[in-house]
Design a protein around this nucleic acid. Structure first.
Length: 487
RNA sequence: GCGAAGUUAGCCUAGCCUGGUCAGGGUACGAGCUUCCCAAGCUCGGGGUCGCGGGUUCAAAUCCCGCACUUCGCACCA
């Protein structure tokens, strides 16, 4: 059984990822570095995302700032809503979510926007005490999950973005004009987001600084079922869970039976499904889970999480939220910029609605590693069965033994390939050991130069998964790799 | 943030209770022999001052205190 511990061990041993600033004892939790092999997978994962979502659907991509002004988050609601009221026991420091605790104790429904004063009054009135040691609470505080930064000598208040999509919303008007937008109009972005998590855990699964790949689809809310390109994908199989009931059916049926509310959402769920199929994640262990009202983010009216089953349970990889016109409305109110557009379809003037696919890159990388890694007991090997196009190294070049002639040919081949591929040259240790080393970091192919190579200009090329070897001409190596890297 | 348990070379681990040849093993890594196509064997080699800081002591990985981090549980995870 491959579990979290195996993956973290592999990551540390082979340089996929490791804790940041680890040589210092005050290194804060929740910050991790990608090592060479991790970057290799991450970059390839992003390339796949671009091909399967951005290019396939004709989206545009931007790369925005990580620090944004206070007003952005005033408008987005993060300044008010992205925080929890917290009460701490004066004696044992036990910390609780104030609203949850009060609701649980007195059975009333405290709303999201409750103030600290209101909470303190409630605590006093009902004489609520720490459930652990029965002492009094300190006055309540709001813990905001955003990192505050100070800009310039006057220390103007700004924040590290807690989600990348706010950049897309504030840039929307300009982009729509410049790129002669038609609805639906999709804008994509890859970048870092920052959340001051109370307790980061489990390496890449809950970070304070993390990568997101977000897609915001601006659409006409009156035309959500008018999407001709839906026909291209409507046969895609979707797995959807609603209230613990699992439905597995084609996208077309899902829309017909109103399991997915409209064609636009269904279409993008299909694109996402087809993308993840190519990452090597076992799609039988995935689902779109419809969130209940109390689980949804403050801006979402319809929310589906794309989840994958791992050794740690169900893991959320992508949040698919229908945000309505919440964000554009808020930004245009506060900035006093009109963000309405004319839908070229019918000259209707509207404020577009937004459906988003907010993808967690780091979690996806973890899920891919866990779903790809396996033990081959028969051959006593640990194999990272990555898709060739996701592997950080594509091919190993190995002289069969330490032999001058083998090595000179090997180096020539290596130099020839390195211009187009990620190649690893290795001449140390027995040939079997070198194959094992490559398999563990997911290298799909290994070229071995042997006695026959000296005579007829051929090498053997070994397949990681089957361990089978074929003999091919040296000049055929490039075409072979190109063919097998295609997806 | 709370509670419990941990932190010894890239990774795993012995030792800590009973302070003084206890820093040892495995694996990984490098060189060589083997010339050998799937982690073999043999020889040699580099790498740790024992999470960080302080205290007790003639003497600390070993006892005490503080801090950081990790794991698990609780809470949190819009």
């Amino acid at each position: 059984m491959v579990d979290y511990d195996e993956i973290i061990k592999l990551s540390l041993e082979r340089g996929f990822y490791f804790p940041s600033s680890e040589i210092y004892s005050d290194a804060p939790a929740g910050f991790w570095e990608y090592g060479p092999n991790g970057v290799g997978i991450k970059n390839r994962f992003m390339e796949l995302w671009r091909k399967e979502l951005v290019r396939k659907d004709g989206m545009i991509e931007i790369d925005g700032s990580q620090i944004m002004s206070k007003n952005v988050f005033k408008a987005s609601g993060h300044l008010n809503n992205f925080s929890d009221p917290v009460i701490m026991c004066s004696k044992c420091n036990h910390t609780l979510r104030a609203d949850k605790y009060i609701n649980e104790k007195i059975g009333s429904d405290i709303t999201e926007g409750v103030t600290n004063e209101e909470i303190d009054i409630m605590i006093k009135r009902y004489d609520l005490l720490c459930p652990k040691c029965m002492s009094k609470f300190n006055s309540s505080e709001k813990f905001n999950m955003m990192f505050k930064v100070e800009i310039g000598p006057n220390k103007e208040e700004a924040y590290l973005r807690p989600e990348t999509c706010q950049t897309i919303f504030v840039d929307f008007s300009r982009l729509f004009k410049i790129f002669r937008g038609k609805l639906p109009f999709a804008i994509a972005q890859v970048g870092k987001s920052f959340r001051n998590e109370i307790s980061p855990r489990q390496s890449l699964l809950r970070l304070r600084e993390f990568y997101q790949a977000e897609i915001e689809i601006f659409c006409n809310p009156n035309h959500l079922d008018k999407l001709s390109k839906f026909e291209e994908l409507n046969g895609t199989n979707l797995i959807i869970e609603i209230d613990s009931q699992v439905y597995e059916l084609s996208a077309e049926e899902a829309v017909k039976k109103n399991i997915v509310p409209n064609k636009l959402i269904a279409y993008y769920l299909c694109l996402l499904t087809l993308f993840y199929e190519k990452t090597g994640i076992n799609m039988k262990k995935t689902r779109f889970r419809k969130l209940k009202d109390n689980e949804k983010a403050f801006y979402a009216s319809i929310a589906l999480d794309f989840e994958v089953h791992t050794s740690l349970g169900w893991l959320e990889l992508v949040a698919c939220n229908y945000r309505s016109d919440y964000d554009l409305k808020q930004h245009s109110l506060l900035s006093k910029k009109n963000m309405e557009v004319i839908d070229p379809e019918n000259q209707e003037k509207i404020l577009p609605h937004v459906f988003e696919l907010s993808l967690g890159i780091d979690r996806s990388i973890y899920a891919i590693l866990e779903h790809s890694f396996f033990f081959d007991d028969q051959n006593k090997r640990r194999v990272l069965g990555l898709k060739p196009y996701l592997s950080p190294i594509t091919v190993g070049v190995l002289p069969l033994t330490k032999n001058q002639e083998f090595e000179s040919i090997s180096k020539k081949i290596y130099k020839e390939l390195i211009r187009n591929f990620d190649v690893y040259y290795d001449a140390s240790g027995s040939i079997g050991r070198r194959y094992r080393r490559l398999e563990e970091i997911g290298v799909p192919y290994a070229i071995t130069i042997d006695h026959t190579s000296l005579i007829d200009n051929t090498v053997t090329i070994r397949d990681r998964d089957t361990m089978k070897q074929d003999r091919i001409l040296i000049e055929k190596i490039k075409p072979f790799l190109n063919e097998n890297l295609d997806f």
